[in-house]
Every structure is written in C-alpha cells, then in structure tokens.
Amino acid sequence: MENPAWLDDGEQRVWRSFLRVNAWIYDELERDLRGRGGLGLIEYGILVHLSEAPGRRMRMRALADSVIVSKSRLSHQIARLERDGLVGKEECTDDRRGLWAVLTDEGARLLAEVAPGHAARVRALMFDRLGPLRTAELEGLLAALEPAGDTPAAAGRRPGVQRATVGDG
C-alpha cells in the first residue's frame, strides 16, 4: 500500500483499548469455564448451540458457522467433546458425506450445571459494569460494526463470546 491511512492518536488508543478489553473478557470467560466444567469457551458455545437446535443436533457445517470457527477446528473440538461423552456424531442419511453433531444427555447435564455461573460471570464482566444505558449504546455501536449480511459466515471465522445462558436470547 503506497500511502497508508495510519490511525491517528485517538483512533490508536480506541483500537488498542478494544483489543485489550476483548482479550481480557475472552481470557476471563475461558478461565472461568475451564474451572467450572473443564470446557473452553468454544466448546461451551458448541454445547449451547446444540442444546438450542431441534433434536439437540446440527449439521457440522452449520455448527461451525454458528460458533464461528473453521470446520477443521470444529472437528478437533467435537472429537474432544465426543471423547468426553458430551457430544456424539451421526451420519446424515440424506448426504453420505455429512455428519450431525448431537448433544448427549451428559453434555446437556454439564451445560445446565455450568451455564448459570457463566451467565453470572458475563454479567459481572460486562453488563453490571456498563449499566442499561451504556449497554444500549454498545449494542448500537456493535450493530454499526457488524459485517454485511448479519450472519456468522459473513462475520468470518473469529472466536467470540458465546451465549451466556442455555436456550435464552
């Protein structure tokens, strides 16, 4: 790029602050979930999305898009969750190449056990600190930054904070 549009001092401060806050919240939630149930944030997100899906099952491709990870990363995570008895895999009868990821009863039990504490941690780290007015402001700011199309696939493959409770928006 010949003449890059460098960030000015104010933009640089905001950008670096955003990165620090994002990393801090992610790390705090990751540590909290590992302590509560031995799950990472992405694994928790997989269990949440499966718990909300009809029949507690999703096609692997759709699940990867939902939790915003690559198919290969999802396969690795699913293998670990399957080894631990939290998720199973089933072949898709209408597409021999396709697989379903299925939440097991043990996975649902663990999710129900850790979700309330996770929701409380999300609230403490973010919403209690912001309050209702700043939360509404942040919602508007984040909406302005959402990728076109408003879908996980449009957002690219970046990890994010997963839903904090089971089955609730």
Rank of each mutant, 00 (worst) to 15 (best):
M58K: 02
M58A: 09
M58F: 03
M58P: 00
M58Y: 01
R59E: 12
R59A: 09
R59W: 10
R59Y: 07
R59M: 08
R59C: 00
R59L: 13
R59F: 08
R59D: 11
M60G: 10
M60Y: 05
M60A: 13
M60K: 13
M60E: 15
R61Q: 14
R61T: 11
R61G: 06
R61H: 12
R61C: 00
R61N: 13
A62E: 15
A62H: 15
A62S: 14
A62D: 15
A62P: 03
A62K: 14
A62F: 15
A62N: 12
L63I: 03
L63C: 07
L63T: 04
L63S: 04
L63G: 07
A64P: 05
A64I: 04
A64E: 03
A64Y: 03
A64Q: 02
D65G: 12
D65E: 15
D65M: 07
D65T: 07
D65N: 12
S66D: 10
S66R: 12
S66Q: 11
V67H: 06
V67W: 10
V67G: 03
V67C: 08
V67A: 05
I68N: 01
I68D: 00
I68T: 10
I68H: 09
I68E: 08
V69K: 02
V69Y: 05
V69S: 02
V69T: 05
V69G: 03
S70A: 05
S70M: 01
S70R: 02
S70Q: 02
K71Y: 09
K71F: 09
K71W: 06
K71E: 12
S72T: 14
S72Q: 11
S72Y: 07
S72W: 07
S72V: 13
R73C: 03
L74W: 10
L74T: 01
L74A: 01
L74K: 01
S75I: 00
S75W: 10
S75F: 11
S75Q: 11
H76Q: 12
H76I: 07
H76L: 11
H76T: 10
H76D: 11
H76M: 08
Q77N: 10
Q77P: 00
Q77G: 00
Q77Y: 13
I78E: 08
I78A: 05
I78Q: 06
I78W: 05
I78K: 06
I78G: 03
A79T: 11
A79W: 07
R80Y: 09
R80A: 15
R80F: 10
R80K: 12
R80M: 14
R80V: 15
L81A: 04
L81V: 01
L81G: 03
L81F: 02
L81D: 05
L81R: 03
L81M: 03
L81H: 03
E82I: 09
E82R: 15
E82Q: 15
E82W: 11
E82S: 15
E82A: 15
R83I: 00
R83H: 13
R83V: 00
R83L: 01
R83Y: 12
R83C: 00
D84F: 10
D84E: 14
D84Q: 08
D84P: 00
D84R: 07
D84Y: 06
D84S: 09
G85N: 08
G85E: 09
G85V: 13
L86A: 02
L86V: 02
L86H: 06
L86G: 02
L86Q: 06
L86E: 07
L86D: 06
L86R: 09
V87W: 08
V87E: 10
V87T: 10
V87N: 08
V87H: 08
V87C: 11
